[in-house]
Design a protein around this nucleic acid. Structure first.
Lengths: 355, 355
DNA sequence: CTGAAAGCGCTAACAG
DNA sequence: CTGTTAGCGCTTTCAG
């Protein structure tokens, strides 16, 4: 029978647990924080009381009293993220980030809070300050291009808040976590060479991104290593967008001696390559092999599904969270950039050179 | 010059603001909470001090002292969400939810925290209790199928935590926010009829979902309204998956008198319809028009891009957040299910009946 | 209209 | 090994 009808059940606090286990507040606190100096028998009793009462410590109270907030802040670029969401463009960056970050946080009793900040505006500082002030996170995860934004990294550094820079290979405060773009591009190129291709086209990304250059260099390195044609006309300029991919592909396939394989630096450009190739009468993969740099959903469901380099976004974020949590329990942070391995997913857009 | 080298800048608190503005703590508190009884002149002074110091109230402290936490909790099904992320299957449910929910929360100074709970297991209660205990959210947003889970809704109801049930049209505690699936299916069917199609195929979703039935009924209603063929063989059973879509399409297109248009109840099934049609020699849209129920990224980037019914996920989540925030400031919650309009996005997979 | 006091749930520092 | 005492930054009474 309901003793107090209509009453909102009062949330159970550390006091209730202490009373139930007949110990002091402090002892309960020690137990939940895995502190030293608690006799096993007592610990047992406290644990039993916690279990019985269904007690869960309040994050807010812990943060108020202690130094830890059990919160990690993941920062993404507002405009780009919202635009991606609005257009439904098939980028699953955020999802992969949540997959890696949230689950890793949960493992350690942490929570990942996802925030958008406007990097380009002069408000970064205000926005970041405000998020830090409201949340007091124990660490921050910066996604590209935030990791290379000095306003952000300096602010974080001044406040002594540990942070991870995803996709950033520069030296500096915090620590970088990235994949090896050059080697990935080289691996894709080598795969194409292995299939017998000797004329391999490459569509670059925006050159303002360091990784675009890295990828091109990896491609060139592999081309030379394979001893195949190193024709500058096989490199076309793109900017990651579908439209730029169309133009670049048209350029490549209109060459007197067109490539038999193309490596494109983004999912959208790869899809564009596929469409243009089809419209120009090239069959994929019989006449033209295509590899996508980005393993987004849209390249898996194209016809044919594309062979792709998979960026380890979830893994990088998980690593970031893990390291940040470690730093928080006093362990030293990494001293050099963490390199996380990519992988090459072979699907039906690549095949041996015909003829 | 740095006055205190190496010192972590002490975060600015309400005290600092009070001192700066030469008023009491409470006055500052009143200003930030838009409380009554503050002379404009004083309010002005406080605001100036806040601005100058870059003060942001601590969420944790506010939650400790007051009743509000400025947090909304969005609950998704753990297994399904993780599986979608892992497989990169092109569902952008979470993204759309974040788009609508986070932005709306931000508008009101709230934060949306995203959590995964295991609906199927017997742990729901424990997991939910634990999230509520740690966070003390001011409201909860339930995504399908959580809104129809009595364990969850009862728990929330007992604790007097306001909650929204997205995609749930049942009566009960909290409030439902959904789209009109039947009308949406009818609209798509009507569009096909308008284009001159008289044999329109329909691929259902799993019949364990109420919305599958709703959609089929909407389709049938529109078929009759258009006075076109109401052939039961034109309805094929699917379960939302790509594979089931392949089988259903094959079945439909192998009919002695195959449909000239197909409405499929999921993005994956629509893509399957496209592939099977192509492989069987049907040109889309010349020989067969296709409409997808779900406007996910993968159906926008197919060749041709698919005409689709867009579910207003972002809008529903935004509405949910808005209503929960309203309830929190004392306004009454809605008394009946909120219906949010869908839309039909016409792309290149639909065309007039040929011949 | 404004201020002073009390306390939210927890941890840090110190006693015992 | 365990308990006591003070706050954390803020909102809530309740006085003025």
């Amino acid at each position: 029978m309901q003793r107090n009808p209509g009453a909102r059940p009062r949330p159970v606090t550390i006091k209730d647990v202490a009373a139930e286990a007949d110990v002091s507040l402090q002892t309960v606190s020690r137990v939940i924080n895995d502190g030293p100096n608690v006799r096993p028998a007592i610990k047992e009793r406290v644990l039993k009381a916690i279990e019985k009462l269904g007690y869960v410590p309040s994050l807010a109270a812990r943060r108020m009293a202690g130094k830890k907030s059990y919160l990690l802040l993941a920062l993404n670029d507002r405009d780009r993220t919202i635009e991606d969401w609005r257009s439904g463009d098939g980028t699953d960056w955020v999802d992969q980030m949540l997959l890696g970050g949230m689950l890793k946080c949960a493992e350690h009793g942490y929570r990942m809070i996802f925030e958008l900040v406007d990097t380009h505006s002069s408000n970064v500082e205000r926005e970041l300050t405000s998020a830090l002030g409201a949340l007091h996170p124990d660490g921050v995860i910066l996604t590209p291009p935030h990791g290379d934004n000095p306003t952000i990294t300096n602010l974080l550094n001044e406040r002594r808040i540990p942070f991870a820079r995803i996709g950033s290979t520069r030296k500096g405060a915090g620590f970088g976590i990235a994949m090896d773009d050059a080697t990935a591009a080289a691996a894709a190129t080598a795969e194409l060479a292995r299939l017998g291709h000797r004329r391999i086209g490459f569509i670059t990304g925006s050159l303002e991104y360091a990784l675009s250059t890295d990828r091109r260099e990896g491609y060139q390195r592999a081309v030379r290593a394979a001893g195949i044609e190193d024709d500058p006309r096989l490199i076309a300029q793109g900017d990651f967008t579908f439209e730029s991919g169309e133009a670049a592909t048209r350029e490549l396939l209109s060459l007197p001696n067109p490539p038999t394989a193309i490596l494109a630096s983004s999912g959208h450009m790869s899809l564009a390559a596929l469409e243009v190739a089809k419209s120009m009468g090239f069959r994929v993969p019989d006449d033209l092999s295509i590899i996508s740099f980005d393993d987004t959903p849209i390249v898996k469901f194209s016809a044919p599904p594309l062979t792709a380099i998979r960026q380890p976004i979830a893994e990088m974020t998980a690593r970031a969270a893990e390291l940040l949590i470690k730093v928080n329990i006093g362990e030293p942070g990494p001293t050099k950039t963490q390199i996380v391995p990519f992988s090459l997913i072979v699907r039906s857009s690549t095949g041996p050179l015909k003829g």
